[in-house]
């Protein structure tokens, strides 16, 4: 008679549910002052910029008058460039682990490093969305206040205002997720943050200025356009405000930016994430 032997399945690593990993990342984010500081900086810069734009509206070299659609658009979406700080927040979520040597504790708790990266990206989506909403609330309030104060009528429709709000939310969320990828690939927080600013302020402005047809596909430009800013209006230098090229439609821009974030995450998961933690 043959003994029946039932193979024992090896214990499957659980290492925490994904929800738990996201909660851990949210707790990390909210337990230091950096995230709040970046949010305050983003809100402050947005308020300052929007106020300056609104006070210059209708004046020589300033935006169009607040009585016009162009003027109101310029003011209400003018703070979209402040969404760069959402990307910076994303960078700090990932590169901060290496700056403060906390990656050791993180990977001891969750050896499945790809899941940690995914949890950081989801956390960045939430936090970035908050940056976008806060920024839009400020620009909208500022724009409405200046429009009312100048005695002008709001010419932007409610549906458009809602789209811009949703666009701020989505674009800031996706920029933050891209920031996580950048911080993971580079590891050096300073280099990654500098890289974000160099890319958005210099490289995209140069490429957009030289090849206007490429402008809708430049990630930061596409993100600001998603937030309602006319294509290139949030750029700096030669490509600022260049017209004649249409931005990607909302869904296409969202899918495009999400695809960039996802592709970056896959590259990071296959390369940087696997590196030794020494």
């Amino acid at each position: 008679m043959t003994d029946l032997v039932f193979p024992v399945a090896p214990a499957r690593p659980r290492q925490g549910t994904f929800t738990r990993l996201v909660r851990i990342e949210l707790l990390k984010l909210t337990s230091t002052r950096l995230g709040y500081g970046l949010l305050a900086a983003s809100a402050g810069l947005t308020a300052l910029w929007t106020t300056l734009e609104a006070s210059r509206a209708g004046k020589p070299n300033g935006p169009a008058p607040l009585s016009t659609l162009a003027g109101q658009t310029s003011v209400i979406t003018g703070g979209a460039w402040g969404l760069i700080l959402a990307a910076v927040l994303g960078v700090t979520l990932s590169s901060g682990e290496f700056r403060h040597h906390t990656a050791t504790l993180t990977y001891l708790a969750t050896p499945a490093r790809g899941r940690v990266l995914a949890a950081k990206m989801v956390t960045a989506l939430f936090a970035g969305a908050l940056f976008g909403l806060a920024g839009y609330a400020i620009t909208l309030a500022d724009g409405l206040a200046f429009t009312a104060a100048s005695g002008d009528r709001l010419v932007v429709g409610a549906a458009t205002l809602t789209d811009w709000g949703f666009g701020h939310l989505v674009s800031a969320a996706l920029l933050a997720a891209m920031g996580v990828v950048a911080g993971t690939l580079v590891r050096s927080q300073l280099a990654a943050v500098v890289g974000i600013f160099v890319w958005t302020i210099i490289i995209e402005s140069l490429i957009g200025g030289l090849f206007s047809s490429a402008r809708p596909y430049l990630p930061y430009t596409a993100a600001t356009a998603l937030a309602g800013a006319p294509l290139g209006s949030a750029n700096f230098g030669p490509s600022r405000g260049v017209t004649g090229v249409a931005a990607l439609p909302f869904a296409a821009a969202t899918a495009y930016l999400a695809a960039i974030a996802l592709a970056g995450a896959l590259i990071a998961a296959r390369t940087a994430v696997r590196r030794d933690i020494t």
Partner: peptide, 18 residues
Amino acid sequence: GFHPGRTARAQLRIQALA
């Protein structure tokens, strides 16, 4: 290997959750 801006209790809360 700790974030200098975090309190000890917050650090342990993160570890406990993990």
